[in-house]
Design a protein around this nucleic acid. Structure first.
Length: 365
RNA sequence: GCACAGGUGACCGAGUGGUUAAUGGUAGCAGACUGUAAAUCUGCCGCUCUUCGGAGCUACGGAGGUUCGAAUCCUCCCCUGUGCA
């Protein structure tokens, strides 16, 4: 995938950097880990520091000193996660800020305006992430509204996408995209029929990439898989297919094998700050007493800067002592694990054989 | 030696006659986390059993006592802090 800010090899795992930072890691380390694209969030950056300020300072890339690709989520997920603070109407969603309680109206147009001001390489349509469980009728009407919002998102985006702050810089590289891309989002709750209809009608709107949203919201893994499978075949194979908000390492490998090109998830970063490390030997909770004297690395098969330097005993000590470095080191390792995993998957794909990785017989790192 | 103030579960610290293994914290042990309101949240946390509903012990410095009933009231003793000799 080519963006104005460099290539993104797929299938890709995208670390989540909600508020203009992948929590606990600096940009230079993200580069070292091989992250080629990270997320930013419309809702959060709009509230603080404000998209106009970011635009004024040259856009999010420049503001946060990140020269690689950026994808911004539209705020659609916050419609779901901040459900107590919002009211959904046809026009859009009125939010009460979780920071200071002030009221704000988010519409598809507003979301596009913000994402363009931030300077995303890939923007997302403003959708409604349907809650789970949801009755069929509820899921249908939610899905229908997401479709109407997708159309409105696209209309506004097409008219304004060249206002992106990095436009001039892009002009110097005519081989690269001169404007950001807008991806559509498939919804439909846990109903395969609705999902398929959503996919079909979203594709009719013609986006350069498609996401599958509203998953991993409490349903079983089998159901998640079923929904992805139901939709994937209907999305054009020559365009990126993005499953939003997943998942555990085993899950992202499986989805990639199914044909998913992009995934993002807060799990590696959040879990890291909570002491959960993903390793080739499974998950370990570094705060457990049994690691108090463990002189081995977090993951013996990992070559990241954390595993090659620090012991589990030390990582445990940092975590138990609530030292800020604990969150940093744990996050670096978890991201290394995720990104290495995806690198292995890409390698396996070029070899034409994913069986080893899927069966677990081949090291993910 | 005298005068005050105190001694509560690993620690800090509520409780001043009865809804009681005893409020809260901390520490400890474990669990959860999936387009980030998350360095957050949840459970356990005296001992021994348990058919997981519960049962039995032991507990508020020590020893007695009052009372149907005491961490809570009384007596003596021990210890700690502060002040004065």
């Amino acid at each position: 995938m080519h963006t104005a800010h460099g290539p993104v090899e797929t299938p890709a795992f995208m670390p989540v950097g909600t508020a203009g930072t992948v929590k606990a890691v600096s940009q230079d380390i993200l580069e070292e880990l091989g992250a080629q694209i990270i997320l930013g969030n419309t809702y959060h950056l709009y509230l603080r520091p404000g998209h106009e300020l970011v635009r004024k300072l040259g856009g999010l890339h420049k503001f946060m000193s990140w020269e690689r690709a950026l994808l911004t989520d539209s705020g659609g997920f916050q419609v779901f996660s901040l459900s107590e603070l919002r009211k959904v109407k046809e026009e859009g969603v009125s939010f009460r800020s979780h920071l200071d309680g002030t009221s704000h109206l988010f519409t598809p147009e507003r979301s596009m305006e913000i994402q363009i001001a931030l300077g995303a390489d890939i923007a997302m349509t403003f959708d409604e992430c349907t809650e789970h469980p949801a009755e069929m009728e509820r899921a249908r009407s939610s899905m229908e509204m997401t479709l109407r919002w997708a159309k409105r998102s696209k209309d506004y985006f097409e008219a304004h996408k060249h206002e992106v702050p990095w436009r001039e810089a892009a002009g110097e590289n005519p081989g690269l995209p001169q404007a950001p891309a807008l991806f559509g989002i498939v919804q439909g709750g846990m109903y395969a029929d609705l999902r398929r209809e959503s996919a079909e009608r979203t594709v009719e709107l013609d986006f350069p990439g498609y996401a599958i949203g509203g998953l991993s919201v409490g349903e079983s893994r089998a159901k998640t898989m079923e929904m992805i499978a139901a939709v994937l075949e209907m999305l054009p194979k020559d365009k990126p297919r993005y499953v939003m908000g997943v998942g555990y390492p085993e899950e992202i490998v499986q989805y990639a094998a199914m044909g998913v090109d992009m995934m993002d998830c807060v799990l590696p970063t959040r879990a890291a700050r909570h002491g959960l490390l993903f390793t080739s030997e499974g998950r370990i909770n570094i705060k457990n007493a049994r690691y108090a004297q463990d002189q081995g690395p977090a993951d013996p098969r990992c070559a990241c800067r954390v595993c090659s330097r620090y012991t589990r005993a030390y990582l445990r000590h940092l975590f138990v002592s609530a030292e800020p470095l604990a969150g940093v080191l744990n996050t670096v390792h978890n991201l290394a694990y995720y990104l290495d995993t995806m690198r292995s998957v890409r390698h396996a794909i070029t070899l034409g054989d994913l069986s080893g990785i899927l069966s677990g017989s081949v090291s993910l790192t």
